[in-house]
């Protein structure tokens, strides 16, 4: 646990972050604010993916599936009733009458996603390695197909437009900070230790009395809960939810962020999410083509997306453990230096 000096420093750092966010909120234009919000949502998604993929060694590709569940759940709750009656006339009565404020909708998004995770977790979490990854990928495909075809609830491929733009910097970073704190407490708890033991060697962990199913299930449902919340935040940021946004490509991007930062580390997850949000965005300026010292570079549209794959290949080749590996940022070590 932290001593008093470390605690003070942590609180000061937290206050500093909040101050910076307040500054950003009042002075930056919409473009940069959106970027900061997207970055925060990516941190939420990658840190929650880290529960399974990093801490427990359960390689899940189903994260966007839970995002979709959360995003649609929240969307159906926050859209004003009259608008809902108009765009979704065939909704079952209980759903057509349901309305909730944004925080309640976020909670519902997380809960429904967690329930889905709990239900599919029973069969899926008995699998290992590649089989498990494939089964979670299967879940992602199922969610996409269902969302595309149950058009009386989801409007199918058209998606639901006109969500209230509730997501702001305080919701995003409030949840981000809460999640990081929760994640940090988990890692230092008996459950977290159990998860890491399973990651090291599941047979040995089981022999030592760690309940495999229980620990994996906890990691899986907790990750899904925050994926659902992240999906809901994302939907209310761009004000549109449509099935093709929660695709395998999204799963790939999240895994790349996690691997590049350092799978298994909360610090690594945050760094991965931040770096891989900012670099593609910065590269976007280069896509349009430019002339440097008489040398003409033609436009290369799509370049910013290629960077995910290129960065993944380079990291896997030269630094498979990612930028920080398994290490964590430690206030104690930082104060010593």
């Amino acid at each position: 646990m932290l001593n008093r000096r470390e605690k003070t420093c942590t609180l000061v750092a937290l206050a500093l972050v909040i101050g910076l966010l307040a500054l950003a909120n009042s002075f930056l234009n919409q473009y940069y604010l959106r970027l900061i919000n997207v970055m925060g949502i990516n941190i939420i998604l990658v840190v929650s993916l880290n529960f399974t993929n990093g801490l427990t060694g359960v390689f899940s590709l189903g994260h966007p599936g839970f995002m979709a569940v959360g995003a649609y759940t929240a969307a159906l709750l926050t859209i004003p009733l009259r608008q809902k009656a108009f765009i979704l006339p065939d909704l079952p009565a209980w759903l057509a009458q349901a309305h909730a404020s944004f925080p309640v909708a976020l909670l519902a998004a997380g809960t429904v996603a967690a329930i889905c995770a709990f239900l599919i977790g029973y069969p899926v979490l008995r699998l290992r390695g590649h089989y498990l990854a494939l089964a979670t990928l299967g879940f992602l495909v199922i969610v996409q197909v269902v969302v595309t075809n149950v058009s009386q609830i989801t409007r199918g491929a058209r998606g639901i437009n006109g969500l209230p733009p509730e997501t702001n910097i305080w919701w995003v970073y409030g949840i981000t900070i809460a999640l990081i704190y929760l994640s940090w407490r988990l890692v230092h708890s008996a459950y977290g230790r159990g998860m890491m033991a399973i990651r090291g060697d599941d047979l040995a962990a089981e022999a030592l009395g760690v309940n495999l199913v229980k620990h994996r299930m906890l990691a899986f449902t907790l990750g899904a809960f925050f994926a659902g919340v992240g999906g809901a935040l994302w939907g209310h940021l761009i004000t549109v939810v449509s099935p093709n946004a929660f695709s395998f490509a999204q799963a790939f991007i999240l895994v790349v962020m996690s691997v590049i930062g350092g799978m298994g580390s909360i610090t690594g997850s945050i760094i991965g999410a931040v770096v891989m949000t900012l670099i593609p965005e910065a590269l976007r300026g280069l896509e349009v083509g430019t002339t440097i010292a008489g040398f003409h570079i033609p436009p290369l549209y799509g370049l910013s997306q290629v960077i995910y794959s290129v960065a993944l290949i380079i990291v896997l080749a030269v630094r498979p453990q990612g930028i920080v590996g398994l290490r964590e940022f430690s206030m104690r070590r930082w104060l010593k230096n």
């Binding site: 919409q30 959106r34 449509s242 946004a245 799509g302």
Partner: peptide, 21 residues
């Protein structure tokens, strides 16, 4: 010219960038 990759969120972000930047 900005590319939105056919994604709604990118289309929105590109529009925001073009207008504000």
């Amino acid at each position: 010219v900005l590319d939105n990759g056919g994604k709604k969120e990118e289309a929105m972000s590109a529009a925001a960038k073009l207008i504000t930047e």
